[in-house]
């Protein structure tokens, strides 16, 4: 088991003919992901190293039966690409595009909620999702993800920050701890998938025995997750929050990463998570060590 995707998930890449799309689409395929088609308007009928390219998502879905899409198109075109995928019957959309205007994100998200309530959007501005050994959609380097073991215990990872998602995978790999699924939800103001969506899935996934959560300063997503954990998550968890030393009022790269008016501080988030029974590390390595202790206890 894994959450959201598995070895049977058929994936199309919107933007496969672009530089990043080709690079990561082919890497995903090489990892073993069923990358069945690419979509680039005007380039239908061509192929990218044997992967057929279609003019529209609808054509690609009709030809391949794909249910997931990897959206890697520029910010200007991303919202339209996401909505096109949803309208064509794709049920799981991963958008890695960075730099989409917040107004577009808010409109796109709420359009999905209204018109396509069964579609899940992951991102935008996220690294994607990997279920080690089964499916890798996005930009994660597959080799840093430890395969889950049949007997467990395996860990689920959910992270708001791209590179810290890799760091978390790496910390577990170093310790030989298997990963069920690793989800990068992205740090933008309106993420399609929240911490809570992932925590709920991990709680219900029999292959996941413990969970690592990586958050960062800004917003209130971690505090909301802490409330959810308190009420609903029985699996043991460790966490790390980036940005303890970030100065207030400064935008730390992500639109999300900003402390304003004393709200959204790392300390407040860590306190909320500790209060919910989560073991909180001071850095990613410590969160990994805490997870190693948890896993040792489960073995």
């Amino acid at each position: 088991m894994a959450i959201f995707v598995n070895q049977d998930t058929k994936v199309i890449v919107q933007g496969l003919t672009g530089g990043q799309g080709k690079y990561h689409g082919l890497r995903n395929k090489a990892y073993g992901t069923q990358v069945v088609a690419g979509v680039t308007p005007g380039k239908g009928g061509t192929d990218v190293e044997g992967i057929p390219v279609y003019n529209s998502v609808a054509e690609a879905v009709a030809a391949t039966g794909a249910t997931a899409s990897f959206v890697t198109v520029p910010p200007k075109a991303a919202s339209a690409a996401i909505l096109e995928a949803a309208a064509a019957g794709i049920s799981f959309i991963v958008c890695i595009t960075e730099g989409i205007p917040a107004q577009d994100e808010a409109r796109t998200y709420n359009t999905l909620v209204r018109d396509f309530p069964n579609v899940r959007l992951l991102g935008p501005n996220c690294p994607g999702i990997i279920s080690p050994g089964k499916c890798n959609i996005g930009i994660t380097a597959g080799e840093i993800a430890e395969l889950p073991s049949a007997s467990g215990p395996n860990v689920g990872i959910v992270s708001r920050s791209g590179t810290l998602t890799y760091q978390a995978l790496y910390e577990l790999k170093q310790r030989g701890i298997g990963v069920s699924t690793c989800v990068g939800i992205g740090g933008d103001p309106v993420p399609g998938t929240s911490f809570i969506d992932c925590l709920r899935e991990f709680q219900n996934d029999p292959e996941t025995h413990a969970i690592i959560m990586i958050g960062e300063i800004g917003g209130s997503a971690e505090e909301e997750a802490a409330e959810f954990i308190k009420a609903n998550v029985t699996k043991p968890m460790s966490a790390y929050i980036a940005g303890v030393t970030a100065p207030a009022g400064k935008k730390m790269g992500h639109a999300g990463a900003i402390v304003s008016g004393g709200k959204g501080t790392a300390q407040g988030k860590m306190d909320a998570l500790r209060d919910a029974g989560v073991k909180v590390g001071q850095n990613p390595t410590e969160a990994g060590e805490l997870m190693a202790e948890i896993v040792a206890g489960l073995r």
Partner: peptide, 16 residues
């Protein structure tokens, strides 16, 4: 660093 999260985390670790 590459990525806002890792950059923030790098600041944290240097501080620690």
């Amino acid at each position: 660093a590459n990525g806002a999260g890792l950059a923030m985390s790098t600041l944290d670790v240097v501080n620690q």
